[in-house]
């Protein structure tokens, strides 16, 4: 995955379900439309969960990747 430009970064490493989702929502709420959040998580369940969250809330999952046990997501607030 190519890296995306991002405006904010959220570190959810070490946190388990549902905290990455809840903290992402909290962070996204403080951002402006069009801004991008980079999320780093270590919970393997976050791949499915973050995509489900993005589909449900209508925010755009620009891309995600796994890198040695860490999951990186780029989410654009829409």
């Amino acid at each position: 995955m190519n890296d995306f430009e991002f405006d904010r970064e959220l570190d959810c490493r070490g946190l388990n379900c549902p905290l990455p989702v809840v903290k992402t929502k909290k962070q996204i709420d403080t951002m402006s439309t069009g801004q991008t959040l980079k999320l780093i998580a270590s919970d393997p369940g976050s791949i499915n969960d973050m995509n489900a969250w993005a589909r449900r809330t209508g925010n755009e999952m620009l891309g995600h990747a796994e890198d040695s046990g860490e999951y990186i997501f780029y989410i654009k607030k829409t």
Binding site: C17, P18, V21, V22, T24, K25, K26, A52, W53, R56, T57
Partner: peptide, 10 residues
Amino acid sequence: LLASTAAAMD
């Protein structure tokens, strides 16, 4: 857990 997640999902 479900309530907090659902709220985060609008």
